[in-house]
Nucleic acid binder design. Sequence first.
DNA 1: GTCAAGTAGTTCAACGTTGAGATATTCTCC
DNA 2: GGAGAATATCTCAACGTTGAACTACTTGAC
Lengths: 164, 164
Amino acid sequence: MDDAVDRMMEQWRTVRPELDPSPMGVFGRISRLNRLLEKHINSYFGLFGLEFWEFDMLATLRRAGDDGELTAGALLKASMVTSGAITNRIDRLERKGLVERRQDPADRRSVRVSLTAEGGRLIDEMMAGHFANENRVLEALEDPAVLAGELRKLLISLGDTSLG
Amino acid sequence: MDDAVDRMMEQWRTVRPELDPSPMGVFGRISRLNRLLEKHINSYFGLFGLEFWEFDMLATLRRAGDDGELTAGALLKASMVTSGAITNRIDRLERKGLVERRQDPADRRSVRVSLTAEGGRLIDEMMAGHFANENRVLEALEDPAVLAGELRKLLISLGDTSLG
DNA sequence: GTCAAGTAGTTCAACGTTGAGATATTCTCC
DNA sequence: GGAGAATATCTCAACGTTGAACTACTTGAC
């Protein structure tokens, strides 16, 4: 069976037969999957009144361990958005009562962001369902580890080896 | 060797050992790859003075075949953005002289968008280099068709089987 | 033929991000 | 210990997207 990307590749073969469009088989699919999955997963977050990025920030804080606290800069690096956006996002989560800011006593330039009790409760409540939701999509694969392994090779070759 | 997603999964295993974070092995990686690849590929488009979305629209018109002409609505469906954004994007490509609008004689609600001579020349000039660029990233894999095949399974299970 | 419903595209206010500049603090080196 | 570079965060104007309302045209039912 063909998917939308197969059709695009076929179009290229027709109009530019001398080109080999096979890289689209990987990159076109990653792009489409990313958008479709984001939409799919979003509907789960909606049940808890959260946007994707809100879930992502709470989860980043939660898994950061210990006290579930990170600097604004660490959240910035983890998020792949720009500094202005992070300030804005922390603002909004703070207004919602899910995180709180406090000054780092050791470095007063730094702002430490942590989950509130409510924020911690919310993300803990969501995680199991979130992974279950993702696992349902993976049922289409015989062995998800094959896919995960190939994706890891690409990430490593692109240098994505650290969280910082 | 570990990548950034391995580290995130390890964090989860530490703070919530009862959860199985393995779905991140696929979904976390797709998300990160998507952003990294977009950045990587963008630097090639920059050489031609184009943004990613501009390349994407020109390529969509080019591979649409025949006369390289599509309605605004077809571009809309192909692009995964909203209607206001498409109007805006066609406007800007038109101002750059890369595409042109004309009214569909058969249905006067419809706008047909086509590549100008310059737009066609530009996209034809870019495609070979673009695929070569992507192929360089794929050198990290022994057989890209394995990855492409797994990704196709996911897309099909999510119903992404048509261009419309 | 006419009217209601449907479809194609545009407009525009609200909203979020970008990214450069501003502010405050810390580090480095003499 | 003081000057300048570096770092952490915030501010804000410019810009692009969203999505609902709008205009224009077409289709279908009677």
